[in-house]
């Protein structure tokens, strides 16, 4: 399958953007149902985006706007790029699908967010940026260790080969460790520390308005697709060989993950920065290390 197809159609923009919106909606809807409310209609994130893009933002110091445009676009592009590496369809895996590249691309969005926070010159933006940076470091230790365990166990850095070859024990433990990392990477409870509204407003996003915020919301939607997609695509070794069937399986599995993450988020309070970091160093890293040990000795 040509790479433009992966980038633009599946699992790229044409799939990722509506899917991201669907996930954002699902998150809000499930939370609402948990709280015995009705919740927003399914087209909500789309209208939010349209509205934000057409607000009249306030004027900024000249030359600054280019960063507000470039950083979210960079984050968006990198995240969609990471999505195209996922081993969803058997045919797309041969050429690309490198684990190292995936990790590099998935980290672009948090770095852009940290930069946006510092760029805002607001104290809340900066504290949010510091928190985001701290948490990115805290969570990447288990994240990368778990991926190394998978790569070692399957003897390859290619995501497709990992997906099909990783032994069951390593796969289960490593994926659990990866799942642990998702709430922090998606800034969900109990680890929504970097965007803790009641402490520092929206963190790095506090000073963004109109399209500047809209672009970032879009990036965040695609982040959901990419990160849940990583686990969804690595969870099942089996591929039917028929592109549509595999894609549907992948999409459904991703949505299940959204449900799981949202239910956890709905049943917890927000932890503190130190508590969150400690959790990741102890449990997240412990689990990832276990996966590594299992992959080494089994």
């Amino acid at each position: 399958m040509p790479s433009w197809f992966a980038l633009l159609i599946f699992p790229g923009f044409l799939y990722a953007v509506p899917m991201g919106w669907l996930m954002l909606w699902l998150e809000r809807k499930i939370l609402a149902r948990l709280q015995s409310r009705i919740g927003p209609p399914f087209y909500q994130p789309f209208f939010d985006f349209i509205k934000l893009m057409t607000k009249e933002p306030l004027r900024r110091a000249s030359g600054e706007d280019i960063f507000y445009l470039l950083l979210p676009l960079l984050a968006l592009g990198a995240t969609v790029g990471s999505l195209t590496l996922l081993p969803i369809l058997p045919s797309s895996a041969s050429a690309v699908g490198d684990l190292v590249l995936f990790v590099a691309l998935v980290e672009v969005a948090p770095i852009c967010l940290v930069l946006l926070g510092f760029l805002s010159r607001s104290i809340f933006g900066q504290v949010g940026a510091i928190r985001e940076a701290t948490l990115t470091i805290a969570t990447n230790l288990p994240f990368i260790t778990a991926l190394i365990a998978l790569a070692y166990a399957s003897g390859s850095l290619r995501l497709m080969e990992i997906a099909s070859n990783a032994p069951l024990a390593t796969r289960a433990i490593a994926l659990l460790a990866l799942l642990f990392c998702l709430p922090i990477k998606l800034r969900l409870n109990p680890f929504s520390v970097a965007n803790a509204e009641q402490e520092i407003y929206q963190g790095a996003l506090t000073e963004l308005d109109g399209w500047r915020l809209g672009l970032w919301e879009l990036t965040h939607a695609v982040e959901w697709v990419a990160l849940s997609g990583l686990i969804a695509s690595l969870a099942v070794p089996w591929r039917s060989g028929q592109a549509i069937l595999d894609a549907i399986l992948f999409a459904l599995l991703s949505l299940v993950l959204v449900v799981v993450l949202t239910v956890i988020a709905g049943a917890t309070a927000r932890l503190k920065l130190l508590q969150a970091s400690r959790f990741y160093w102890r449990w997240g890293f412990g689990l990832a290390l276990l996966a590594l040990v299992v992959s080494l000795f089994l």
Binding site: A32, G39, P40, P41, F47, Y201, L205, T206
Partner: peptide, 12 residues
Amino acid sequence: EQLGIRLEGSPR
């Protein structure tokens, strides 16, 4: 929220 209304923390 069923009307799409959200309470925001930042006036921006």
